[in-house]
Computed example of a mutant assay.
Amino acid sequence: MSNTSLLMTSTSAGGPAAAFVSFFPLILIFVIFYFLMIRPQQRRIKEQQATIAAVKKGDEVVTAGGIKGRITRVTDDEAEVEIAPGTRVRVVKSTLSQVLTRSAKPAND
């Protein structure tokens, strides 16, 4: 019984310093998680939003539904996408998931 009472007094006698030491690994894990997971994801989201905001006529795009097409007209929040010859649909720019740039030329052309 004396060992149990000795153990209880030593942990409760630490105060705020002991509480910090016990929470330090948890804090360290959160900081590592932030720099390895959250921050790079936020950077990718910003890059994608900038790419979608800069879409222009003639760019090839893929919508969130998986439809590929070419931009024929752009307004502030909408884009007109030609998905087949003579078939155009209006989509909200935020639903564009990928912009396939036309500036990249094939190697054999």
Score class of each variant (00 low, 15 high):
94 S>F: 06
84 A>C: 05
90 R>N: 02
78 E>V: 03
103 S>H: 09
37 M>L: 15
92 V>A: 06
89 V>I: 14
102 R>H: 06
68 K>R: 15
16 P>Q: 07
39 R>T: 04
24 F>Q: 08
77 D>V: 06
37 M>T: 13
70 R>L: 10
66 G>R: 01
105 K>L: 04
71 I>S: 03
34 Y>F: 12
26 L>V: 11
93 K>E: 10
48 Q>E: 11
84 A>F: 03
19 A>G: 06
5 S>R: 05
95 T>G: 01
67 I>F: 14
59 D>G: 00
107 A>F: 09
67 I>L: 13
75 T>R: 07
101 T>C: 01
73 R>V: 01
60 E>Q: 08
36 L>K: 15
69 G>E: 11
44 R>V: 08
95 T>C: 04
7 L>N: 03
104 A>M: 10
1 M>S: 14
34 Y>T: 13
37 M>A: 14
57 K>M: 04
39 R>P: 05
11 T>V: 06
93 K>N: 05
1 M>A: 09
88 R>T: 09
106 P>M: 10
24 F>P: 05
91 V>A: 11
108 N>F: 02
16 P>M: 08
87 T>W: 04
42 Q>T: 12
58 G>P: 12
23 F>S: 09
45 I>E: 15
65 G>F: 01
25 P>S: 08
75 T>G: 03
103 S>K: 10
19 A>M: 12
103 S>W: 06
87 T>R: 06
8 M>H: 11
15 G>T: 14
34 Y>H: 11
51 T>L: 06
67 I>A: 01
36 L>R: 06
51 T>K: 10
7 L>A: 07
46 K>L: 11
74 V>M: 10
44 R>A: 14
104 A>R: 08
28 L>I: 11
24 F>D: 11
21 V>M: 09
48 Q>W: 14
66 G>W: 05
68 K>W: 12
80 E>I: 07
98 Q>T: 02
25 P>A: 03
12 S>Y: 12
44 R>P: 05
91 V>Y: 15
7 L>H: 07
84 A>I: 02
88 R>Y: 00
86 G>K: 07
19 A>Y: 10
28 L>F: 04
40 P>H: 09
23 F>M: 04
83 I>P: 01
26 L>Y: 11
90 R>Y: 03
52 I>G: 03
63 T>I: 00
